[in-house]
């Protein structure tokens, strides 16, 4: 067996000697700068979208259609509050993802990954769906006052479109949760395979 292994090792070392980089370190450093910008955009993409939605909603309720009824004001407050909470949670999640340190040993890194994936699953699961329900309740609380200024047809179209979007969001979240569950299971399996002696 050792002879076989020594043969493979010799082959391995010979192969290594023939491998050389296609790029210079300067070219790699240039790509690193580009990728770093992409990575920041990717991580904070959700935060940006949520922030934009918050700005649009605040502008709408403050400058375009300031609601007068108490029920409507509570509704608008719920909608804005939900978005603020979701933004804070998303920033927290991004910060947690930065704590995953690939310079740690593999078992430690896999354990940290499991914790992070569980956090993401909680965020995408009960938490986001609860927030979506509260947001919807808020939106429907404004409905009676909107009806004073708008006719039934555009109102039904608007709320109908909202409900369809809500269903699409829930279905997307369900898909994401399923994928995250698979990731958690796979990561746990990897950790188990490393820590046990079979």
């Amino acid at each position: 067996m050792n002879n076989d292994f020594n043969d493979i090792q010799q082959l391995w070392n010979a192969e290594k000697d023939s491998l050389s980089a296609n790029e210079t370190s300067q070219e790699v450093l240039k790509k690193i700068t580009e990728k770093k910008n992409d990575s920041t955009k990717f991580h904070y993409g959700n935060v940006f979208v949520l922030l934009l939605t918050l700005i649009v909603i605040c502008t709408f309720f403050i400058f375009i259609a300031p609601v007068q009824e108490t029920l409507s004001r509570i509704g608008a407050g719920l909608m804005i509050g939900v978005l603020v909470i979701r933004i804070v949670v998303e920033i927290y999640s991004v910060k947690q993802s930065h704590k995953l340190d690939p310079t740690h040993n593999t078992v430690g890194n896999l354990s940290a990954s499991v914790q992070y994936l569980k956090l993401r699953r909680r965020i995408h699961g009960v938490f986001t769906i609860s927030l979506l329900v509260i947001y919807t309740i808020g939106l429907f609380m404004i409905f009676p006052e909107f009806l004073l200024y708008l006719s039934w047809v555009p109102m039904v179209v608007f709320y109908g479109m909202y409900l369809v979007s809500g269903i699409i969001i829930i279905l997307t979240l369900k898909k994401k949760i399923r994928q995250e569950l698979v990731d958690i299971e796979e990561t746990i399996e990897l950790r188990k395979a490393l820590t046990t002696t079979e």
Binding site: L29, I32, K35, T103, N105, T106
Partner: peptide, 30 residues
């Protein structure tokens, strides 16, 4: 190598450079 560049300042020399790079490589592969 992107990770190596980003984490280079945190390398304290507690392990050898080769071990440190192996850790990044194994974690990244997985």
């Amino acid at each position: 190598f992107i990770i190596i560049w980003n984490k280079l300042s945190s390398f304290e020399g507690k392990s050898t450079l080769k071990t440190w790079i192996y850790r990044i490589t194994v974690n990244s592969c997985l």
